[in-house]
Design a protein around this nucleic acid. Structure first.
Length: 563
DNA sequence: CGAATTTGACCCGCGC
DNA sequence: GCGCGGGTCAAATTCG
């Protein structure tokens, strides 16, 4: 009856810092505010679950400086209220600083005293000793004053901190209220990256959702229309989990790696053909592999789980190199997006049920949206494993973050180490179906208001404009990928598996990549780099308040295929 | 010649 | 019940 659904989506975005000169783009952005087909799709899919569900959204926006350092962090509730980044850590630090300052003062004082005494002993002159003593007393007085001042300051700080906590609690309570009322759907949206990018990204998500959701739900994010121009590109990973408690329909989790410019794909639609994730099938990968992937074998969850992992990557090739071998078995133009959607099947192992859909993002044609479904019944190539591991971790991290967000969003930053991501291991991993039993996940879904919800986290790097991978073939085809392109290794050639065809990822050798920044590199082309990029994003995110290393955001890029 | 891709047709679920 | 749209199948075609 009550087809309750838990849905959690986490979106992690790695935004590539782009150079202005690369921004010439090819006018791909011409599609303006048009919604990406996948967005539409998502929008279509979500409605079933979200109709009537009230959403709670907490958005974390991290502004990044040009160098990628985080300059500003804000939490934004769904209702649009925005409060300054919880200075909790900062406040604590201030407090500590204050104490340490005090300690430092005392130490200094002692030092001075000792020095004065030493001088006196050395010189032995009365007058000089008297002068020293006068000086000393003066300094002591000053010290006293400073101490007093320090105490006052500390009181002020304490009070401020208390006030802050109070406000935070109030906010949390306020945010939880709606969730309690309508536990069906909760959504946490976290974005990291340039404000513009983040808001743009969230905007897109909203855009996608607004399809089926009440428009009023996300007032805070606005102007989706302006997103197009931003072209914040990069890699984002979003993880979503949805469980249909109704009968054994299926519980789906999907991790989307989405760039900020596009919405997550996930359509939670239950399709018959999705019965790919029976845990029983989880057997192919050797333990070592699983371990490497950060997957701990675990209690199998009763079948009926579908895993969907959506990866969005700026990629010029027909597909991104995920380390697996794929064979194209179909292509179709989805409504709302002129770019055809290609269907691939994993050919690494004969009976592997894993499939993937690849489609260009309408908003930014340079972005490739790859959605994986199912679980491999065979050991994964190293590259695929790496990606699986990373995306899993990212997803897990997101979940954890969002989980804690219900009480205190700031905790998200504290979730630095995400141990086993097994439960989320949807991405290409055999054990994809284990996730649900994860204790970590549970609190997230159930705790956040009883129904689970949608969580979104975006890690955006700085976004500038224009696509990194500018138009490959300037005269010929505006969107070469939108046409039936020769394989280029993308579909079936796939990478590490030792496919016959060289993957385009390595095509860098063949063809000089136009305007590709060295640091950008073909991350996507190399699954390891890809995962590294995600990891970097996560690390960056976690270390945001620390001296956020100006480390560049991972740039998920793929080199254009050689033609 | 075998393998992979293309592409139109078919199937199925969902909304109206 | 019908139409729409997404996903899959399989014959035809292309490529190495």
């Amino acid at each position: 009856m009550s087809s309750k659904k838990k849905r959690a989506a986490i979106d992690l975005s790695l935004e590539a810092e782009r150079r202005p000169e690369e921004g010439d783009g090819d006018g791909e952005t011409s599609d303006g505010g048009a919604m990406a087909a996948k967005d539409v799709k998502q929008g279509e899919a979500v409605p079933k679950e979200e109709t009537g569900g009230e959403e709670k959204v907490v958005e974390v926006v991290v502004d990044q400086g040009e160098d990628g350092s985080n300059e500003e962090i804000k939490y934004r509730s769904r209702q649009g209220e925005m409060m300054e980044e919880d200075k909790q850590p900062a406040a604590a630090n201030d407090d500590d600083d204050g104490e340490s300052d005090g300690a430092g003062a005392s130490a200094e004082e002692k030092h001075i005293v000792a020095e004065a005494a030493g001088n006196g002993d050395d010189d032995g002159g009365d007058s000089r000793t008297a002068m020293a003593q006068d000086e000393l007393s003066e300094m002591q007085e000053e010290m006293e004053r400073m101490k007093e001042e320090n105490r006052m300051l500390r009181r002020v700080v304490d009070k401020t901190v208390r006030d802050y906590y109070e406000l935070q609690m109030k906010l949390a309570a306020y945010q939880q209220q709606p969730a309690a009322d309508e536990p069906k759907e909760t959504e946490v949206f976290l974005s990291l990256g340039a404000t513009a990018a983040a808001s743009a990204g969230s905007g897109r998500f909203q855009e996608a959702k607004s399809k089926e959701q009440a428009p009023a739900r996300r007032p805070s994010v606005g102007s989706d229309d302006t997103d197009d121009g931003k072209e914040d590109l990069g890699l984002s990973l979003s993880l979503g989990a949805s469980s249909y408690e109704e009968d054994q329909k299926l519980e789906a989790r999907h991790v989307d790696v989405v760039d900020g410019s596009a919405a997550a794909i996930g359509d939670g639609k239950a399709r018959p053909g999705y019965a790919l994730l029976e845990s029983s099938k989880v057997q192919g990968a050797p333990a070592g592999e699983l371990a490497a992937a950060g997957i701990a074998s675990q209690s199998v969850n009763p079948a009926n789980r579908k895993t969907r992992v959506s990866v969005r990557v700026r990629c010029a090739g027909p597909t991104m190199n995920d380390g697996c071998q794929w064979r194209k078995y179909g292509q179709k133009v989805a409504k709302g997006n002129p770019c055809p959607r290609a269907y691939y099947r994993c050919t690494v192992a004969p009976g592997c049920p894993v499939r993937k859909q690849v489609q260009r993002c309408l908003e930014d044609m340079s972005i490739l949206v790859t959605t994986y479904e199912g679980t491999h019944n065979h050991p994964l190539p190293v590259g695929a494993t790496a990606m699986a591991s990373t995306t899993s971790a990212a997803a897990t991290f997101m979940l954890l973050s969002s989980t804690s967000s219900s009480s205190s969003v700031s905790d998200a930053a504290g979730v630095s180490t995400v141990p086993s991501s097994s439960y989320l291991s949807p991405y290409l991993l055999n054990s994809a179906s284990h996730h649900s039993s994860s204790p970590l996940l549970m609190p997230g879904t159930s705790g956040s208001g009883g129904g689970g919800g949608m969580q979104h986290l975006n890690l955006f790097g700085h976004s500038s404009s224009s696509s990194l991978l500018a138009p490959q073939a300037p005269g010929s085809n505006k969107y070469p990928w939108s046409l039936n392109h020769p394989p280029l290794g993308g579909g079936a050639g796939g990478g590490l598996g030792g496919g016959k065809r060289p993957f385009w990822s390595t095509g860098a050798d063949d063809k000089p990549t136009p305007a590709l920044p060295e640091n950008v590199g073909a991350v996507v082309s190399d699954p390891n780099k890809f995962s590294a990029a995600i990891a970097a994003a996560i690390n960056n995110f976690m270390g945001k308040d620390g001296e956020s290393s100006s480390s560049k955001w991972g740039v998920v890029e793929s080199l254009p295929p050689h033609e």
